[in-house]
Amino acid sequence: MDKVRIIEVKQNVLANNDAEAAKLREELKKKGVFLLNLMSSPGSGKTTTLKRTVQMLSSRYKIGVMEADIDSDVDARAISETGAKTVQLHTGGMCHLDASMTKQGLDELSTDGLDIAILENVGNLVCPAEFDTGAVKNAMILSVPEGHDKPLKYPLMFSVCDVVLINKIDTLPYFDFDMEKCREYIAMRNPSAVIIPVCARTGEGFEQWINWLSGQTDTWKNTKE
């Protein structure tokens, strides 16, 4: 007769992914590559922000970009115009990237000689927040037309982010977007998040964002352990 027994597992479902992400971060540390995971809703301006970011940093750093989408390569084409090494990742219907998919993307991109790798995650404020990709830092973009109450609706996304870019500030006169309320709501979820208002179209506010990103990259590359 079959012997049936119970095995206690008591393990977080994402423990395997977390372990893979930690391993990936360790490899990146050895190679001196700073991996940024960029998240946001669809249409918040991730690709435009990335294009300007690459243009402003390309004289100082070698940058590679991974574009993750469910389908198409329109974003990868747009980014490759900047001269950055670009690969398009297709998630095949999945709403997010996890650590093993990110690792595959980095292998495809080839991190040799890279200073910064940027992962443009799937446009979605829910699922990508659940999965550690192995990135050194998480950034998210909230655009003015989306409204200042997003931090209340998607608390996990805001609590995992190290920096929040508030994009499309050139449209502030046309929307009921309360910048102070937005800062307050983000701080409620994540008191240590850095908040930078920007406009990717005009470049307003980008100096502070570029300073943040290059500062983080230099710290990552120059500190041991």
């Binding site: 393990q11 479902v13 992914n17 999945m94 699922c127 659940e130």
Partner: peptide, 24 residues
């Protein structure tokens, strides 16, 4: 739809536990 990603993680974890414990 991140349920699918979560299910893959569960399947992997349980397969590992099953292997370690010689489970049929």
């Amino acid at each position: 739809m991140h349920e699918l990603g979560i299910v893959f993680n569960i399947v992997n974890s349980v397969e590992d536990v099953a292997k370690q414990n010689n489970v049929a």
